[in-house]
Amino acid sequence: MKRAIGMLCFCLAAAPVFFLLPAAPASAGCGDRPAAGVDWSKCEKRRLMLGSQNLSKGSFVRTDFSRSDLAGAKLAGADLTEADFEHARLAGADLSGANLAKASGSRANFVEAVLKGADLSKAEMARADFTGADFTGATMQKAELGRALLNDAVLDGADLTKAEIARAVFAGASLKGADLTGAYTYLTHFEATDLSAAKGLTQMQLDAACGDAKTVLPEGLTAPAAWPCGQE
């Protein structure tokens, strides 16, 4: 009996213990099909037709989506840190709560995209089209939005602290509670824009910007004599 018990103990001691070890973290699967939670980090996804795909909560860190069609795609909660959207189409896409910090999207189409609560800190979106997009509560600190189109966009409660918005167009945009502290407003277009509830706006910023008789200003600020701006 003692010998049998001893053999049993030896067998248990020698048994593999791999079942006790935690599973190794999955690596990005560039060949994986589009799906919620997919990991395409650092993958090349250029010139693809991904419209209306559900990619919510996916990982796309430094993914190259340049010139791809993502119109109507679901990217809510996705990690798009440093992703490349140059010339991509994201019209009507849901990017609510997505992380687009340091993402690039020169000349990308974000018309009527939903970016509620998204993080666009230091994102480079020069000449992107955000007409009718919803940035409610978005973080846009130090974002590069030079010459971007934000006509009729909703930026209520958005943080545009130190954002570069030179020559960007905000005609008809809603900026209730938006923080423009330190934003660079050289020739920024605020024609027909209600700025009365915007925060952090100074007379110096307005003097560098463009507006017209329909621009509504915060209390204490006045329209510059140079308004409306002439043609550049």
Rank of each mutant, 00 (worst) to 15 (best):
S196A: 14
T139K: 14
W227P: 07
A158I: 02
A226P: 04
K102D: 13
A208S: 15
G117K: 11
D179R: 11
G211Q: 03
C11S: 12
D152L: 10
D32I: 04
M125I: 06
G105Q: 13
D64I: 03
L75V: 01
A126C: 10
F18R: 13
A168H: 04
P218N: 06
T202S: 10
T188K: 09
K142N: 09
D156Y: 00
Q141I: 12
L8P: 03
G92D: 07
A93G: 12
G31Q: 11
F135I: 08
G132E: 07
A126G: 15
L155V: 01
K2N: 07
S106Q: 10
L100N: 02
R107K: 15
M204T: 13
L187E: 14
N109I: 11
F19W: 15
L149F: 02
L80I: 10
A133M: 06
A171W: 02
K176T: 12
C30K: 02
L70R: 08
M140T: 07
M7S: 08
E164F: 09
D129N: 15
L70T: 03
Q141H: 08
A208K: 15
A223G: 00
N54W: 02
M125Y: 06
S52R: 14
T193R: 00
D79G: 01
V61S: 12
S27F: 11
G77C: 04
L221F: 06
A88P: 00
S196W: 09
F135C: 06
A183W: 07
S104C: 00
D159H: 05
S68Q: 04
V169W: 05
V169G: 04
P228M: 11
V61E: 15
L145Y: 08
D179H: 07
S196D: 10
H189P: 00
Q231L: 15
A28S: 15
S66A: 14
D194G: 06
R127M: 14
R107H: 13
A103Y: 03
L12W: 08
Y184D: 12
C30D: 03
S96M: 01
A78I: 03
D152V: 05
C9A: 13
G200W: 08
L21Y: 13
T63C: 01
V38G: 02
Q141A: 09
H87Y: 15
P25F: 13
V114F: 10
A173I: 05
